[in-house]
């Protein structure tokens, strides 16, 4: 009998024309091979025509749903990948423009949030008990009433500290009078519009900083803010007695 694999290949049309011709010639002289080829054809035909057709609409629908999800994801990925540099660049430009705009428009204003953070930022004032330094002298020179206030019945300068608020030098001065401690903050720029829920009264602006009453006024290019556990009137009265020698 002819090689059976060859017979199957002939039935499947998988032999070349020459091989096919050769096998067919051999089959003519072999009854067994002829019968076997016929059996192969019959089985193939039976399987092809009688095998069941399966389908499942639910699975097809679920598959298509997943394809739609995958397609959506691929579209987003594609968009982000393609335009990532553009999107990042646009954000960068927006941030830069916003920064420049903010710097130009608000250059002379200090926001209330900045003032509050300044209190945390500026270190605790150094004790006045230490030997006076050149900065002490500068500060005494800055505050007109500094020498007068060494009288404990009026206002005593107990110490000072310097901090930095966005490149501006901020001075915090610890004061004390008969009623207790006060803090005086000197900031370059205008704070009159920077204090939240503030009320203007004459040259003073009153409001809250870190939950404490505070009163501010502008002197030249400087703003001075007095903070303490007092009424606004008391703070205004104290602040009115403070002046800068070289504002």
């Amino acid at each position: 009998m002819i090689d059976l694999a060859k017979l199957h290949a002939l039935a499947d049309g998988e032999l070349s024309a020459e091989e096919s011709q050769l096998v067919r010639e051999q089959i003519l002289s072999s009854e067994e091979s002829n019968r076997e080829l016929s059996a192969i054809y019959n089985l193939k035909d039976c399987v092809r025509t009688k095998s069941q057709v399966f389908t499942c609409e639910v699975t097809l629908a679920a598959s298509m749903k997943r394809v739609a999800e995958l397609d959506r994801k691929q579209r987003v990925d594609n968009f982000v990948t393609r335009y990532a540099w553009g999107i990042s660049g646009a954000f960068l430009v927006m941030i830069a423009v916003g920064g420049v705009f903010s710097r130009n428009v608000n250059a002379n204003q200090v926001q209330s949030s900045e003032i509050a953070s300044t209190f945390a930022m500026v270190p605790t004032p150094a004790s006045r008990a230490a030997a006076p330094t050149a900065y002490d002298h500068w500060l005494d020179g800055l505050l007109q009433h500094a020498k007068v206030s060494s009288d404990p019945t009026h206002l005593e300068v107990r110490g000072w500290a310097v901090g930095d608020l966005e490149g501006r030098r901020v001075v915090k001065v610890a004061l004390r009078d008969l009623n207790g401690d006060l803090a005086l903050l000197m900031i370059p720029g205008n704070v009159s519009e920077g204090m939240g829920d503030s009320v203007s009264s004459g040259s003073f602006v009153s409001g809250k900083i870190n939950g404490m009453n505070s009163v501010a006024k502008n002197i030249g290019a400087q703003s001075i803010i007095l903070v303490g556990d007092r009424s606004y009137d008391q703070l205004s009265e104290i602040l009115s007695r403070i002046a800068l020698r070289n504002p």
Binding site: L4, A5, R35, E36, S38, I40
Partner: peptide, 8 residues
């Protein structure tokens, strides 16, 4: 490979 027709 066994033939299908002979022994059947």
């Amino acid at each position: 490979i066994e033939p299908m027709s002979i022994e059947s």
